[in-house]
């Protein structure tokens, strides 16, 4: 019981994830800034922002649906933290694992987007409503390519469990190279999940102010931002576990360092994508996802089936 609680609350649960999330936000912002030839924030900036937001007054709009408005940030954070428990870090074993947890993780990662939608919708402001509608429209566009991109490796491995996927690729080195196109697809699709350029349409600052988060303030906004940070770490770990399954099975310290390098590599790639692209319009985004990204995901599936059916026999 005590170890369970330790896992949930301290490592690799809530406390570790929060700290890691804040640090990942710093890394993301710093990389973004340096690519733009700026200096960027100091290392404690995300933490300082978080503490500052905690100390601010939380304003709930009169016309908002109070209960949903209050609950959604907590739900978002909970879902993001929970999904981390199924992802193997430096070992081929996650904390909890069962056949089918890959699907569970993907669905748990969808929950934050849904909570953003509900929170934005229930705050009953014009900007939030439009942001909410945009975020749910976007969900339908990026989710399919993302699923196809991530599930292709599991098809090749022949299992729906993340731990077994990494065990498979660890055993069959070099097969992960087949999945590299899937990594590119997933990298682009997660920009939509994390609401970053080019898919930061739901919170496009110059168009609809704060989008979904316009009416959120104080502690609730802090929780929402923390949820996004944690989601970024979880997504980066997921991509690292599925697409870069090498260097596993070392001693915990070395393994952990390798894991960190992989995660920050993914964060670097995500920052690069958002540095070099302009924000798309929602209809261009949906078009792009269905016209190019989804077929590419399909192709990746076909390639994986081919490799599994022909070469692995």
């Amino acid at each position: 019981m005590a170890t369970q609680l330790f896992y949930l609350l301290i490592f690799p649960g809530f406390l570790f994830l929060s700290a890691f999330g804040l640090f990942a936000e710093y890394a993301d912002r710093k990389i973004y800034a340096r690519m733009q030839n700026r200096i960027g924030p100091p290392w404690f900036q995300p933490l300082a922002d978080f503490i500052k937001l905690l100390g601010k007054e939380t304003i709930i709009p009169e016309s908002a649906d109070r209960r949903i408005f209050l609950l959604m940030p907590v739900f978002a954070l909970t879902a993001a933290v929970t999904s981390f428990l199924y992802i193997p870090m430096w070992d081929t074993h996650a904390l909890v694992s069962f056949n089918g947890d890959a699907i569970v993780v993907l669905y748990l990662l969808t929950i934050p987007t849904v909570t953003f939608f509900l929170g934005g919708w229930s705050s009953n402001s014009m900007y939030s409503t439009i942001g909410a509608v945009r975020s749910i429209t976007q969900l339908f566009a990026y989710e399919v390519p993302l699923f196809m991109g991530i599930l292709a490796p599991s098809l090749l491995a022949g299992t729906w469990s993340l731990s077994e996927i990494s065990a498979f690729y660890n055993a069959h080195s070099w097969y992960w190279l087949v999945n590299l196109p899937g990594l590119a697809i997933a990298l682009i699709a997660v920009q939509g999940k994390l609401e970053k350029v080019p898919f930061d349409i739901p919170e496009a600052e110059t168009e609809i102010v704060g989008g979904t988060f316009t009416e959120y303030s104080g502690r609730l906004l802090a929780l929402l931002r923390m949820a996004l940070d944690v989601e970024m770490v979880v997504v980066a770990s997921l991509l690292a576990a599925v697409f870069l399954p090498f260097g596993l099975g070392y001693a915990p310290i070395t393994g952990f360092i390798i894991y960190l390098i992989k995660v920050f590599f993914i964060i670097f790639l995500m920052a690069l994508v958002r540095t070099v692209l302009a924000r798309l319009r929602i209809e261009q985004m949906v078009n792009f996802c269905w016209k190019y990204l989804a077929p590419a995901g399909l192709l990746q599936l076909v390639v994986c089936l081919f490799v599994k059916g022909v070469m692995l026999q």
Binding site: V197, L277, R279
Partner: peptide, 16 residues
């Protein structure tokens, strides 16, 4: 213009 279309990198470079 870059900033308005969410292309902040263009903003940073051209202002630099």
């Amino acid at each position: 213009a870059g900033h308005e279309i969410g292309f902040d990198t263009l903003l940073m470079y051209s202002w630099r």
